[in-house]
Amino acid sequence: MKSDRSLQALIPLLLLLAVLLPAAGWGISVPDSIILNKNGALYDQISFDHARHIRVTKECSDCHHHTTGTLVEDPNCIRCHRNSGPSQTVSCRGCHTPDPFSAKSLRDKDHAPKTYHLDKPGLKGAMHQSCVGCHTKSKKGPTTCTGCHPRSAAGDAFYNTGEYAPKPKAGKSGH
């Protein structure tokens, strides 16, 4: 079953990190900007200003968990990751799969019952939760859909908005 292909066709917000770090670890190579939502159908791709976010956030771990930078303080995480060093994989996509609910992903979960992080959001969910959560909490930065990524024409059609907005019908009114 070509679930991946159909997912790409059907998930309009498939997010991709275009630029990945060749090596892990703080200070080696940090991208200043990252192209997000490269294959998105409903929203255009955007350039994520990584450098600016580095400036305004206190810790890398605010977004990157325990994978890089300072140690996490979350009591749930430090149970295991108190002594974890920086990990090889730092990018979002490195852990968060773009198709968390495909038959394959669910099967993999079934076959790895001892994995702790079974309830791991997919890539799209992880990024949105991280971005929207922080923007909302800090009351800084956009929290609406188009605040971050402009909607494409296909998106306007999908959301019945813009030039695809429903026209008020003359005469006939519902109850």
Partner: peptide, 24 residues
């Protein structure tokens, strides 16, 4: 029936909807 999640789950940006076996 093809093993895929429903459309609403697929599109949800926040992953407020988690698809899986009910028992899980």
């Amino acid at each position: 029936k093809y093993g895929k999640p429903p459309a609403c789950v697929d599109i949800c940006p926040q992953e407020a909807l988690t698809f899986g076996h009910r028992k899980d």
